[in-house]
Design a protein around this nucleic acid. Sequence first.
DNA 1: AATGAAGGCAACCGCAGAAGG
DNA 2: GCCTTCTGCGGTTGCCTTCAT
Length: 361
Amino acid sequence: MGRSPCCDESGLKKGPWTPEEDEKLLHYIQKNGHGSWRTLPRLAGLNRCGKSCRLRWTNYLRPDIKRGKFSQEEEQTILHLHSILGNKWSAIATHLPGRTDNEIKNFWNTHLKKRLIQMGFDPMTHRPRTDFFAALPQLIALATLRDQLAATACGGGGGGDTAAAAAAQIMQGAGGGGGGGGGADVAIQAAKMQYLQCLLQSAASTIASAGSGGGGGGAMSAHDADAALAAAAAAAATCSSSPAGSSVPITPTAVGHSGGGQTQTTPCAFSEAPVITSDDVEANLRLLGCGGGGADAFTCHGGSLPPLADLSDVTTTTMTNPLDWCSATASASSCGGGGGASSPFPWPEFFHDDPFITDFL
DNA sequence: AATGAAGGCAACCGCAGAAGG
DNA sequence: GCCTTCTGCGGTTGCCTTCAT
């Protein structure tokens, strides 16, 4: 499309518009209509290119533009339409009177996208992330963290790493009281699993989200990496705040999922969206290791999209009830790791050979 | 109070499709 | 049918403001 950009002409002003320029443009369009954008600047006495004038008019000067914060209804509309249309901002804007595509795009990029990521959803598909392999870099990092955990828990030291310290608290709280016996082991193991679960889920969702945009390639941007780290930190904090010795599972509510049979507690703007199938829900729950979710745990995203990964063959053979996962895990092995032979942990089988994974089983 | 970081938003850039000659 | 022009769209950038240290 060898078209030379309209702004190539030298001498045309760029950058922020002055009130005087705004006034000129406004008066001209109100008087004559915009007509041809290319000729408009000259006729209006503006030293701008037509493109710049059009943008200024459509995004700022147009009289019907609604300014100010987006309402809850608008937010829901954007989320719902985006789940259907994707980044078709102009199409989305047609459903939001007074809002420009640019404004919606900005709102999405600065608010909604981040929120979805932090909730553990893929902002492109509006579905919970299930890309386990995308989290492998995080697993490696977690392996290092695990070593720190072991050192902290056994040595009883303080630990500068927040996550490590939190996990150490979990472990110590669960195992506290000394001798422990079987019950303490169960609690410790459960705490470990829950902590790992939170970290993995968070890492998988955020990292996969970051790498999911645009046709599959691409390195993660620093921005997304930050979001990932933030989400991981949030998940870790959530895990650490739960009483490890209790029987209440640490659900991923903090990152947007609901577990333990309760409904979504995080404010969810997808409530009007179609409900995904129970099969999808179960597959997601199994992979994420989130116990006890009902179908209503994932009512917040579009149901028309295919699953991100077909996990049924991996998961259905290992467990049939997400709740079994935790209960079985809790009785699997002792704190030192060692080893339960046949684990209900829903990893692909070849992961059972991984020292890091097996140590948690 | 000063400074750096992060967030929010306006504007620019380049591409693609439609329209006209 | 081809070429040029115009318009619209989506991605990205950079500036300004706000917040945290």
